[in-house]
Simulated scan of single mutants.
Amino acid sequence: MKIEEAQTEHVIKEKAKELFFKKGLIKTTTQEIADAAGVNRALIHYYFRSREHMLSILLDEAMEEKRERVKSILSFDLPFREKIARYIDAIITYNMTYPYLENFIISETVRNKDRTEAYCARNQSRSSDLIRDQLAEEIQQGRLAPVTPEHFLVNLIALCNYPMLAKPILRTIHGMTEEAYHEFLLERKQVIYMTIFNEEMPSVS
Score class of each variant (00 low, 15 high):
Q134P: 11
E61Y: 01
A118C: 07
A158L: 10
P168N: 09
L153T: 02
A85W: 04
S72Y: 00
I84P: 08
V110W: 10
I91R: 07
D89I: 06
L135I: 05
A62E: 14
E52Y: 06
I57C: 04
M164W: 00
A85F: 13
E117P: 03
R171K: 15
L78F: 05
L59H: 08
S75W: 02
E138H: 05
H151A: 09
V154C: 10
N155W: 01
R86A: 14
I84D: 11
E52S: 13
T172A: 13
E65G: 10
H53A: 15
H151W: 06
D60N: 14
P99E: 07
V110N: 12
E64R: 15
A62I: 04
D60V: 11
F80I: 05
T148H: 07
E137N: 13
R143L: 12
I57T: 14
I92K: 00
R69F: 01
N161F: 09
V147I: 15
Q134S: 15
L59P: 04
S128N: 11
L153Q: 04
F152D: 09
M96P: 10
L144T: 06
S128A: 14
N155A: 15
K167D: 05
D60A: 10
R122K: 15
N155P: 07
Y94V: 01
L78H: 07
E65C: 02
D129N: 11
T97E: 13
S72H: 04
T148R: 10
V110Y: 14
D77Y: 06
Y87M: 06
N95H: 09
Q134T: 08
L135E: 05
F80D: 02
V70M: 08
R111E: 13
M96H: 08
E150A: 00
M164F: 12
V147D: 03
A145W: 03
D89F: 12
A118V: 08
M164V: 00
I88R: 01
E68T: 10
D114N: 11
R132I: 11
S107Q: 03
L59G: 11
A158T: 08
C120I: 14
A118F: 07
R143S: 04
S125D: 14
E61F: 02
D77W: 00
S72G: 06
D129H: 12
Y98K: 04
P99K: 10
L170D: 09
L153V: 00
S72N: 05
P79Y: 01
I169N: 02
D133L: 13
R122Q: 15
G142K: 03
Q141D: 12
F80G: 10
C120Q: 14
D77N: 12
F76Y: 05
L153G: 03
P168A: 03
R111D: 12
R81M: 03
L59V: 08
K83W: 00
C160T: 00
E108G: 05
H151D: 07
D129Q: 12
H53R: 15
A90D: 05
I169M: 14
L159Q: 08
A136L: 10
H53K: 15
S107A: 15
T97D: 10
E137Q: 14
Q141Y: 01
L58E: 06
A62C: 07
S128T: 08
